[in-house]
Structure formats: C-alpha cells, structure tokens
Design a protein around this nucleic acid. Structure first.
Lengths: 103, 103
DNA sequence: TCCATATGTCGAGACTTTTCGACGTATTTG
DNA sequence: CAAATACGTCGAAAAGTCTCGACATATGGA
C-alpha cells in the first residue's frame, strides 16, 4: 500500500485529469459526437445542433479546449473547432501504458 | 457534421462516461494511487491514508465501484477493494479504437 | 446475548459547476 | 462610420456534487 495520499499527483495525471473531466460530461460528449472525421465546425454550427444556449456551449467548448481535447482557430469573425485526435490518442496510450506497467 | 445532438449516447460511451467522471476527481485519483500492483485494500486502510472522513471515502469508493474501476468483495466484517485492471485496459482500448476508427 | 469492529446510509450544509440573459469586443459589409 | 454577424465574458440563479456527524446494519467473539 502506498501511504502517500497527499503527495503531488504525477504531472501526467493532472493533464489526463482534465481530459477525464472534460469527457465525463454528457453535453460535452454530444458536442464531440457532432464532429465527423477531420471536420472543423464553428461555434454557430455547434450551437445550432445543441439544446443549450450559446454561452453554455461556449463554456463547454472552453473546457474542452483547455483540456486539449479540441483545437481552435479564429478566421475572420468565426472560431473553428476540431477534435485534437493526435493528442487524444497519445493521452489514452499513456493511460494504457501507465495502467499496464504500474498498476 | 452530425446533427443528431439529442440522440442516445452510444452505450459504450455511457460506460466510459462513468469511468471518466470517476477518474476526473483528485481524491479518487489519490485513492487509486494508494493501491500497489495487484493489491487488495479494505476500507479502513484507505480511510487511514486519506485526509477525508470515512463517509466521504465511502462515497468515492462507491462511485469508483459503480464505474467499474474498482472491484469489491466482503469478507467477514471487512470489504476489500482492488483495481479492476482488465476492465480499465479494455475500456481504454475501446476508447482508443473508437477514436482511431471513427473520429 | 452483549459488545466491539467494520462498513454503509441519511441528510443538511458547504462548495462547485452549469446555465442563460445582458452586455462587450472584433470583424466584415454597405 | 453605421449596421450586422460571430463570438466571448459577466454575474446571479439553479443544479449538482461533496462532506461529515449521526445513525443503522452486519459480523465475530466473549
């Protein structure tokens, strides 16, 4: 048994933790499922299919971007989002490796 | 763009979602980090290294068990918990595969 | 049976997250 | 520059989660 409950969480876990929190919400899952392969969507498009208000969608997009799950780019008046697939694949590979080797 | 925002979340995602929620909390991460490879711990042992009260730990253990992250078994007066490694490996493999193939 | 130990449940309060209208900023167009 | 469009932020209320003391249940031993 590892007794150091209060020690610092490994840095890799802090990043993963944000991903887990981001993916643990149903609205955010629905937003992710809205994207098709390699697709980029602007905020209005996401709001259009969502049942939430624009500020609420904006809130979720912010969390997803801060977690690294989505990338974003402003072009003109619009802000486009896309799924950061390489990051997610790497994150889950890391989790899998940690799990396999350490636990 | 997939416009069916309100349709049912794929069943596999519902399961994953609970795992993500379970792993997205720092106290629950610390509980998991308390386990060493293949180890089984009873509630008192986990409470002993935790900074939380027993009811709070019990709450987190319940969420982890319901998510499938921990297994548990009552033996005599004690309830033992262990990390459900096969389940976690399978879950993350599924996520990885879904991500790779669909998104 | 009576007591000690191990754990779960309940419920109120504390704390956190989510939600949306109102407002503000940036960009493009007439 | 004025108006329209796209988006973010603010702040207060609603909703959800967490926390712990008090109580309840279950097991094993004297």
């Amino acid at each position: 048994m590892n007794p150091h409950y209060s020690r610092a969480i490994p840095p890799a876990w802090v990043q993963m933790s944000k991903v887990f929190t981001a993916l643990g919400d149903e609205h955010r899952q629905r937003i992710l499922l809205t994207f098709e392969r390699g697709e980029r969507l602007n905020v209005s498009q996401i709001v259009a299919v969502s049942t939430l208000s624009r500020p609420a969608v904006s809130h979720h997009l912010k969390l997803l971007r801060e977690a690294g799950v989505l990338g974003s780019e402003k072009i003109g008046k619009e802000v486009f989002f896309w799924i950061n697939k390489p990051f997610l694949l790497e994150t889950f590979d890391n989790v899998r490796t940690y799990l396999h080797d350490e636990l």
